[in-house]
């Protein structure tokens, strides 16, 4: 296993740990660490292929996604005073085990993908990307607090980025930066809406936002 795969798989393991924790602040920390490892994996890939665009984008990820967004979301949860997010549907540990199961599935998917793409060697990177995608989706489905939904969305986006880095020779820089900017603005606006939800509904449980129905 080379260093690129090591970093990205470590990142996906931290994401799975996120599925097993109910404390929102711990989840934010785990999200930040996972993003940091993902950026490290991208950075080492940029050194390997001496690709300066990848280096720039990984530095931008470290600054915006691994530092700025967690700090902002931390500010949000301190303002609205929520601490934990117990899971929905089934208990939290089962969610984590599902995450581990999906990591296995992602490896199977990767092997299947690699059969048709003989030119790509980093199987670990692709596995980590698909696993992050699944983890993000599970997190969004299994949690009910609005902040958790945002963290799940960000994890999903990390997975898409990692998958993009591993199967393309990096997307064009300007598109990556544009995507990052969009995500940043979207997260800021989500934060604003969370303030509004907590002040007008006195909770931020999104499963209870069900007043608009067909009646």
């Amino acid at each position: 296993m080379n260093i690129i795969d090591f970093f990205s798989l470590t990142g996906s393991c931290f994401a799975i740990l996120m599925l097993g924790s109910v404390s929102i602040r711990l989840n934010l920390w785990l999200y930040a660490i996972q993003t940091f490892f993902m950026a490290l994996s991208t950075l080492s890939e940029s050194f390997k292929f001496s690709n300066s665009e990848l280096a720039i984008i990984s530095l931008v990820i470290i600054i915006i996604k691994a530092f700025f967004i967690p700090i902002f979301l931390n500010f949000v949860i301190e303002k609205i005073k929520v601490k934990s997010d117990s899971g929905l549907i089934f208990p939290v540990p089962i969610g984590m085990h599902l995450g581990i199961l999906f990591l296995g599935f992602s490896n199977l998917f990767t092997l299947e993908i690699l059969k048709s793409l003989p030119e790509i060697h980093h199987s670990g990177n692709i596995t980590a990307g698909i696993s992050l995608l699944f983890t993000g989706m599970l997190f969004m489905l299994l949690r009910k607090i609005a902040v958790s939904q945002i963290i799940g969305f960000l994890t999903l986006e990390n997975g898409i980025f990692l998958l993009g880095v591993s199967i393309t020779h990096s997307m064009p820089l300007i598109i990556d930066l544009g995507v990052m900017l969009d995500i940043l603005v979207a997260i800021m606006i989500c934060g604003l809406f969370i303030f509004k939800i907590s002040s007008s509904f006195e909770h931020i449980d999104v499963t209870q936002l069900n007043e608009l129905t067909e009646s």
Partner: peptide
């Protein structure tokens, strides 16, 4: 009600569009 509709709109469309990015 507007807040609920906006939140649903924002989250569902953002996640959908994330798949378009993939």
């Amino acid at each position: 009600h507007a807040l609920e509709a906006t939140w649903k709109y924002f989250v569902i469309c953002s996640v959908g569009i994330a798949f378009a990015l993939l």
